[in-house]
Amino acid sequence: MGSRLLNIQRRAAEHGRLRTGYTQGNRPVRSATWVVTSHSEEHVRAAAELWGGEVEQWTPLNSNIAQWRVITKASSIEALITPGDPLNQYNEMWSAGGCQRRCDGETELLSRQSCLCARQFGEDWHTQPKGRVCSATSRFNVMLPDLSGMGMWRAETHSFYAASEWGGMVDMVLAGTDGKGFVPVTLRIEPRQVVRDGKTKKFPVVVVELRGVTPRQALAGPMSTAMALDPSGTRAVAALEAPRPDYLALAAGALHVDDVGDVYRDANAAGHLNDELVAALSKRAEELKAEAAKKASPGGSTEQVPDEDGAYPAEVVDEPSSTSWPAVAQAGSSN
């Protein structure tokens, strides 16, 4: 096994961001559905195919580097929590000049002072208007298994409520898996509201939920990668299903009306019959019936020729099937 640098943290490349809002001009707009942004047009177009929306070029505020984005039609998307601790949380205050405060809830790390917001406004500091105090900033790194690439996608929220819920959810999962293995989750944008000072405030909160597994399974230890990718097992079942036979090709190669009848019965047993297939099989039976009638006519050849062993061909008649098929085929088989 190869060696690694021990003083460098290993992490997957970041492919893009999962956002709950977007900008129109210089105005921020909250979104009820996921907004996917990336420097890669390929990733964003793949997201649009999965979750809808129109792909467009977009330049973030305070930046002159264009990216790609799609405002999807999906409020829920499937994701994977990857090994390690995927959650990063700070109380932060940003301006055009960059990050002005970054606090762990007790100590403001840039100035090394005690929490400035709590010292000024008390324990309910988070109810103050945005910009006056820090925002509870949570960054959640996940993998999107249905998009190309093995990199990470960062979901970010400044919701005080999501901060506590994300932390509780991730802590429980890490307690069960010890940060090993993948865990299937759903990221869902949920509308909420609170009444504060007689005013109703509505806002979106990103909820992280287990997907396809029970708490018992998630907390029992690291699960297999195969289970995390397909917790319900439906994709594995679909992969094992036999491909649908080409009934039209089988009928085209039939030499007798009875052979077409066999194709009909097989299709019926498999639940593949439809009006178009019945019509095609009936047409083929008519063609074989006409060919048989032509051979039986005075101008046709009815002489049987023995094979190399001197045996003449014999017709084998099966017991009639309980599943009937079009009358034209039944009539043809009596010739």
Score class of each variant (00 low, 15 high):
S334D: 15
A13Y: 01
T234R: 14
A251W: 10
A314N: 10
W34N: 09
V328K: 02
P245A: 09
Q9C: 08
G310M: 06
A96T: 03
T72N: 01
Q128C: 02
A269V: 11
A329M: 11
V185C: 04
L144R: 00
S324T: 13
R10W: 09
W51I: 07
D178N: 13
K73M: 12
L240I: 05
K130D: 00
A267L: 08
A236Q: 05
G131V: 00
D178C: 05
D104M: 03
D262A: 10
F160Y: 11
S63V: 00
E286Y: 01
P83L: 01
R17V: 02
M223V: 06
E49V: 09
M169I: 04
R119Y: 08
I65V: 07
W153D: 13
P243C: 02
P245K: 05
R265Y: 02
T37M: 13
A331C: 02
R45Q: 12
G52V: 15
G198C: 08
L187F: 07
G332N: 03
R265H: 06
A162T: 09
M172S: 15
A296T: 08
A267H: 03
W34Y: 10
H126W: 15
V70H: 02
V213F: 04
G253N: 12
G2S: 14
P245W: 09
P86R: 06
S40Y: 06
V173S: 12
W325S: 02
W51K: 11
S135P: 00
V173R: 08
W125F: 15
L61E: 09
